[in-house]
Design a protein around this nucleic acid. Sequence first.
DNA 1: CCTCCCGATTATGTCGACACTCAGAAAATT
DNA 2: AATTTTCTGAGTGTCGACATAATCGGGAGG
Lengths: 261, 261
Amino acid sequence: MALTNLERFRAVIGRVLAKEDGRPSLVVEIACTIGAEILDGLQPPGSDLNSVELARRFRTSRTPTREALVILEKEGLVEIPPRRRPRVADHGLKEVGEIYRVRAAMLGLAATEAARHATAGELAELRAIVTGMQEAARTGDSDGYYWGNVRFHERFAELSHNRTLQRSLDSLVLRSLRFRRRTLSNPERLQRSIADHSRLVSALEDHDSELAAALVKANVMGALRALEVMLGGAEAAASLQPIEILGKTQGGDGIRTHGRG
Amino acid sequence: MALTNLERFRAVIGRVLAKEDGRPSLVVEIACTIGAEILDGLQPPGSDLNSVELARRFRTSRTPTREALVILEKEGLVEIPPRRRPRVADHGLKEVGEIYRVRAAMLGLAATEAARHATAGELAELRAIVTGMQEAARTGDSDGYYWGNVRFHERFAELSHNRTLQRSLDSLVLRSLRFRRRTLSNPERLQRSIADHSRLVSALEDHDSELAAALVKANVMGALRALEVMLGGAEAAASLQPIEILGKTQGGDGIRTHGRG
DNA sequence: CCTCCCGATTATGTCGACACTCAGAAAATT
DNA sequence: AATTTTCTGAGTGTCGACATAATCGGGAGG
């Protein structure tokens, strides 16, 4: 695994943005870099993304930087209040639930369409990914499992052969990617997740669209429940509340350290 | 009805864009105007949207114009090939089907959540809209029915109390708004659509989430079938196929006529 | 007569600059 | 000293300008 997590996030965002449009590479480049840092946690929620500093960093004018931020805002990773500095979006606990529920519904549709249209070759590839995920889980390779999961969902969405659905799903994936890593920490849930994935491929092979849809929905909703337990317990007390309560205390020093002296 | 269709489209787009972010008014202003013209058919699919002409027209620099086009591209109304002029997006028959299927799935989720969370007051408002739609249909007020339908779906999405779902739905609505008007031309389908809407409100009042979801899905898929018949018959022979078959032949003259001598 | 190539024209992507606005520090008042 | 007011620095939104790339039209060649 020569690739760092940041580079992998970067690749994922690149695929999402490139799928939509072959926009000039500079803007996409900037958007990918910033987006990857957000997903990787290098830019924590709420941190400033003022365009002049970013422009200095990327050695460009502010125009492409602004456009990149606008794109990332449409993807839900950045907030741009009018006449105020852009900042990393901070999805509250409620919004996380919304994202997962919508994602469950769309993955259900994807499963239905995949069960109809998927070819044998595509399914074999999916099966291979699941095998890799099992292997990673067995050896305790948490990152390996995580990225296998990401890749599985990427390929799975493609199986629907529905570009519109893929785009909508991609947008939600980017929003949820920040949280998904935490849902793996529970080993019991991880085992069930693997079983779900394996059975999902089987269901697709049998063209059983209802079972496939039910499985993906169950998997996503299970992840959401796990997340709610973690966030409800940990973040509501440790991370979300302090931002609200202490206010400026954390805005000053704690965050601005994203490493370019 | 003092409002023209263009103004109504403009208002719809304005609500969609303003919901996402309170972006500077100038960009949103331009995006609303161009978007409304696209939805209204004043800018036919494929017509040029070069930023210099638009900038002249709105008496601004090209910067806000470009940003507006980027936003409209994210909403699926505009295509911006790299280094090439932006143009009005042209959804083929296949993509229309995709949009409607995704929309059906998401409206299903919206119905499920609305059946749980909707208040009596909200449902009364929905009922009133349906009554207005019935009235419009009875008097043959095609436009009145169309805008009642739009408003119904706007309010209905809000009933889910799920902002993420609303945003995803909004994006799909903008894409489908161009076609929906055509699905009304069939009077038989119109009657069934009204019945579906009425029963949907009843189902929501009974908190019957399954029936509500089934009804909205049936309604959307019915609209899709009607569209496919129309487009499959008319457009596949007259408009879509020539683009594929003749190639560059139509790129020169046939489309470029969007009226500014 | 049609096709291909080449120059003039136009549009794009990017840049640096400007007025206006916002946030925080300094100063003045109670 | 605490609170309000002023003031200064920095950032945003917008503009006009430039280099580069794409498009349109005419001329050479088949």
